[in-house]
Structure formats: structure tokens, C-alpha cells
């Protein structure tokens, strides 16, 4: 029996998966959430998402995992998409050197939009070991370098995992690690201030985005 009489409130964590096209982001997400691998996933257009409830320590967590298309770079999903992100999963394909070379720019993409957060780097497709182009040591060193270069006032950490979404190896560990890191960070943050008042849903509400009064469409410039 727990000594705490009231169960802890369920915590919502938003995780974003980034990486080049075809590295296996969608497969990793489905393997972690549904424990299945399908070789017939369509290319992600824009973004996709799944949720999973899990327990980290004694805390129940609802993990909202956002999968992104491999071409959605340079803020093409807009800043609103990244709002509230708690952690990031960077994925590359161990058989494609170029996908590893782009990991830095994916991390930068995330940092620009969401700020620095704990993250994990995943080298996927280890089942294709005979075609490996990126040695484990190279990726591990890259993570070590990121951790060493981080802002002293902002102790974010990047852990490295190797996975095979096809064979379900390392997937659970990687996602549990990112959930734990995001949860620890969230626990150290002050609780959000509740909204000032209730809202009447029957009342017409103006759009709150800047420039929403402009009913003309097209380019905003």
C-alpha cells in the first residue's frame, strides 16, 4: 500500500518525434504504443499522433506522441504545433549516414520552436546491421558532445538508444527514458496558473489569433 492516500494527478506529456523521411518514426511510435510493426505504413503528411498511458515511478502519465513528416522542416508546421512540447525524440537510420548528419538540424528546429528540452536520440533499424553506416560510438559521442555543450543554467540531457522497430528492441527503453526525463522536468517547474475565469460556450467568441479578422486568404505578406 502506498503511504500517499490520494493518487497523484495524471500528468500529460507532449513528445515530438523528429527525423528524416523514412527513418522509421511512425514505426517506432506504433511499436511503442500498440506493440506491433507493420511494413505498410503510409508516408506521414504534416503530422500524426497517438497517446499512451503509462506509469513512471508512481506517477500515471498520459503520453501524447506526435509523429512528424520527414520533410516538415524550417518551421513548416508552424510554432503552434510545438507549443507545450515537453521532450523530443530525434530519430535517424543507422543504415543512412545522411540521416545522422541531419540530426543536428532537427534538434535546432525543435529548440527554435519549443526551447531546449530533454531529448533522446534513437538510431533505428539495427536489424539491418550488415548495412550499418553509423557506428554506435559516433552517435554516442555526438550525444556526449551535446550534453557537454549545453547551457550550464539549463541542464537538459540527451540520451542515446539504438532500436529496431521491426524487432521491437530498445523501443520501450527509449520512450520510457524520454517520458521520465520530461516528467522530472515538469515536476521541477512551477504549476501553471489556472485561467482567470470560466467561459460561456454559448457566447460567440472572436478568433484569438493575430490577424484573424482578415477574412481574405492567401499569403499573409
Amino acid at each position: 500500500m502506498s503511504s500517499n492516500p490520494t493518487p497523484a494527478k495524471k500528468q500529460l506529456l507532449k513528445i515530438i518525434i523528429l527525423g528524416d523521411s523514412g527513418v522509421g518514426k511512425t514505426s517506432l511510435m506504433h511499436q511503442f504504443v500498440s506493440k506491433k510493426f507493420d511494413s505498410r505504413y503510409k508516408a506521414t503528411i504534416g503530422a500524426d499522433f497517438l497517446t499512451k498511458e503509462l506509469t513512471v515511478g508512481d506517477q500515471v502519465v498520459s503520453l501524447q506522441i506526435w509523429d512528424t513528416a520527414g520533410q516538415e522542416r524550417f518551421q513548416s508546421l508552424g510554432s503552434a504545433f510545438y507549443r507545450g512540447a515537453d521532450a523530443c525524440v530525434l530519430v535517424y537510420d543507422v543504415t543512412v549516414q545522411e540521416s545522422f548528419a541531419h540530426v543536428g538540424s532537427w534538434m535546432e528546429e525543435f529548440s527554435i520552436q519549443a526551447g531546449r528540452r530533454d531529448s533522446v536520440l534513437i538510431g533505428n533499424k539495427t536489424d539491418l546491421e550488415d548495412r550499418r553506416q553509423v557506428p554506435t560510438r559516433t552517435a554516442q559521442m555526438w550525444c556526449d558532445k551535446q550534453n557537454a555543450e549545453g547551457d550550464k543554467n539549463d541542464k537538459t540531457e540527451m540520451k542515446y538508444f539504438e532500436t529496431s522497430a521491426r524487432e521491437n528492441t530498445g523501443v520501450e527503453e527509449a520512450f520510457m527514458a524520454v517520458a521520465a526525463a520530461a516528467l522530472a522536468r515538469k515536476a521541477s517547474q512551477p504549476a501553471p496558473v489556472p485561467p482567470p475565469s470560466t467561459v460561456n460556450l454559448n457566447q460567440n467568441q472572436p478568433g484569438n489569433a493575430g490577424g484573424s479578422n482578415n477574412t481574405n486568404s492567401g499569403c499573409s505578406c
Binding site: I45, G46, A47, F49, W66, L77, G78, A80, F81, R83
Partner: peptide, 8 residues
């Protein structure tokens, strides 16, 4: 965010 579903 509208982008999450409407882009597709």
C-alpha cells in the same frame, strides 16, 4: 493547432 490535421 490547425496545422496538425489540416495540412494533410
Amino acid at each position: 493547432s490547425s496545422a496538425t490535421y489540416l495540412i494533410r
